[in-house]
Amino acid sequence: MSKKSFRQAINEALRQEMRRDPRVILMGEDVAGGQGGSADNPDAWGGVLGVTKGLYTEFGAERVFDTPISEASYIGAAAGAAATGLRPVAELMFVDFIGSCLDQVMNQAAKFRYMFGGKARTPLVIRAMYGAGFSAAAQHSQALYPLFTHIPGLKVVIPSSPYEAKGLLIEAIRDDDPVIFLENKVMYDDEEDVPDDSYTIPFGEANLTREGDDVTIVAFGRMVNFANQAADRLEKEGITCTVIDPRTTSPLDTGTILDCVAETGRLVIVDESSPRCNMATDVAALVAEEAFDALKAPIRRVTPPHTPVPFASVLENLYMPDPARIEAAVKSVMGYKAKQEA
């Protein structure tokens, strides 16, 4: 066990799985970086933010492939390779670039198994960065996990910390279905204790980062940290929260969510993605349908507004959910109870 950053945890997961299984290969734009460059330094970048640094040096050109800027072809190639014996981990860089290759994910990889009557296995992992907070503007800041969650056949993972990232990525690589693995770009330098040995975290099993009596908060990815910060502050005022990190949006651990809501009777959902048809609406529908009787207050969603991500920091800060807004949402559902009882 030692302190590792989110970046290091992901790198270590890839490295350990590549050592363990020769069928695991890596591809993407500048996952090594420097191919053909005048400096003769073929591991110059290790990904645009250095996450795959050193993997080319260890595993070489046989297993680490820099790609041309041709997402439709290399993401599709990863799907095809997965269906024919390899276990590719393809890096899409920014998840926003899915626009350039969605067919290969949505109509190809996701559907092979079902369309082919259960005869295909597509052990593909697509890693990509998501999220606002970098002033990277409308085309480099989206949180598109609902888009993938919507597509049957894909599994979708959103790790909320370095520990989570390592275990979930190893699980993703060993999984026989196509997995979209989304890394929040502002979390790469977050650190925590992460075991040195390899370990897996199963999909579809939510993690309770804390348990409380009053309100259940379901949060995704980076929002788990915000929810914990809000819960810390609320606790000082005597309001205790259960915070659920579902870890994967597909499969979704509906059981844990329903159990917690049954106990607290109040639900706040924190989702960094655009508010229409996102995870917050999905979880709200689930609870409204399955746990209606348990609810003591209306469900509250904390999300950005229905706008593209703005560039200017002042606007981006307004756009993003934050601990203060989560706190306010929790207080509002608590307040609703007070009104009812009065």
């Binding site: 734009e29 500048d30 420097g34 191919q35 460059g37 110059a44 820099d66 790609t67 041309p68």
Partner: peptide
């Protein structure tokens, strides 16, 4: 170059 990759490699 496209980012860190030379066009001699990628094109």
């Amino acid at each position: 170059y496209g980012e860190a990759t030379a066009s001699s490699y990628a094109c």
